[in-house]
């Protein structure tokens, strides 16, 4: 199951996981993977070549029996492509040279699996299935030299565990990166509450509005309404990519709570896409004052607060009106 990824990202993957020549030597030493094993493995390479096809066939029959793995092979072409790649992958196990290039290649393959979301348990299960099948075939092949079959199998086990360690490392590495990124995204850049005029607040919301932030937004808004005795608050959601029923519900509740405190909330910056989605979902925003953009929201708020609106041309006069 392999697909090419670009060279650079794998290079940095090697660095990220900390694969150096020394680290490779260290991993091999820990597994006691040495010259003898390489010789054993090279020795069974022709046999491995012969059992490659039937083992792959059984392997994919097995994978197609499970929902977790079947989803990846809905398409015949994909299945064939992946089978070929998998055959190469297995074939490589008995070819020696477990060096930096080998490791790089293995990491690349691990990363592809991680990216498509193959669960670790499936990854390990696949190695297990493979090893059991190969064991049966080796012992069958070397009926008269079971010692040899065992030696070869144990050597193969070491290489497979080297691979498994690398695969799991790519998963952990990706997960760590993801957690870092998410923490950044979720780090509640608390929405600022801007007091633009006496009794008028603006809350520009940027980024995803998940339950925690939505909750925070409500608290901040209500608290500010309390302390500033604001009569109007503009919640601008221009920077929010998705509003689903839960977020909409949250906004509705916030609006009602603000109303109880004597303030009107004006929702601005509802994009046409979000508006369409909300209509399709069936959220009823008819009780909420909404405007397309912040500008018209401000105008609406000023009207509510009893400011007189003056055309922009009459600037001098408007300045007099707003000392």
């Amino acid at each position: 199951m392999a697909e090419q990824t670009n060279q650079d990202s794998t290079k940095s993957l090697m660095e990220e996981i900390g694969i150096t020549d020394r680290e490779i030597a260290n991993r091999c030493a820990f597994l006691e993977l040495g010259e003898k094993d390489i010789k054993e493995l090279l020795g069974i390479d022709p046999v491995a070549e012969a059992y490659a096809d039937p083992v792959i066939e059984d392997f994919y029959k097995h994978l197609l029996n499970f929902e977790e793995t079947r989803v990846f092979f809905q398409d015949r072409q994909v299945l064939e492509r992946v089978k070929r790649a998998q055959k190469q992958y297995f074939a490589r196990l008995t070819r020696g040279n477990y060096d930096k290039d080998y490791i790089e290649d293995r990491l690349k393959i691990g990363a592809v699996h991680e990216r498509i979301g193959l669960p670790v348990k499936a990854y390990l299960g696949m190695y297990n299935f493979y090893l059991r099948n190969v064991a049966a075939r080796l012992f069958d092949e070397y009926k008269n030299d079971r010692e040899k079959a065992l030696r070869a199998f144990l050597s193969l086990l070491k290489v497979v565990f080297l691979d498994m360690g690398l695969a799991i490392d790519t998963y952990i590495n990706r997960r760590e990166q993801l957690i870092g990124k998410q923490q950044e995204a979720m780090r509640e850049l608390p929405t600022p509450v801007l007091r633009v005029r006496e009794r008028l607040l603006i809350l520009p919301v940027v980024g995803v509005l998940e339950s925690y932030r939505a909750h925070q937004l409500t608290e901040q808004l209500l608290e500010s309404i309390g302390t500033t005795r604001a009569k109007a608050a503009i919640v601008d959601i221009t920077g929010v990519p998705v509003v689903d029923s839960r977020v909409a519900n949250h906004l509705l509740q916030t609006v009602s709570a603000a109303r109880l405190m004597g303030a009107t909330v004006i929702l601005t910056g509802l994009s046409s896409q979000i508006a369409q989605a909300l209509v399709a979902i069936g959220v009823d925003l008819s009780q909420v004052k909404t405007t397309v953009d912040l500008q018209s929201g401000l105008e609406e708020a000023e009207r509510l607060l009893g400011y007189r609106l003056v055309p922009a041309g009459d600037k001098a006069r408007s300045d007099q009106l707003h000392p």
């Binding site: 697909e3 977790e68 989803v71 990846f72 809905q74 398409d75 994909v78 990216r115 498509i116 979301g117 193959l118 669960p119 993801l178 998410q182 995204a185 979720m186 995803v208 998940e210 339950s211 925690y212 990519p241 998705v242």
Partner: peptide, 20 residues
């Protein structure tokens, strides 16, 4: 070229990821 992606969801953060 990705044909299929499978993502485990347990948290809000996963929901964001899935949407992306």
């Amino acid at each position: 070229m990705t044909d299929v992606v499978q993502i485990t969801v347990r948290s809000d953060a996963d929901i964001i990821l899935v949407r992306q």
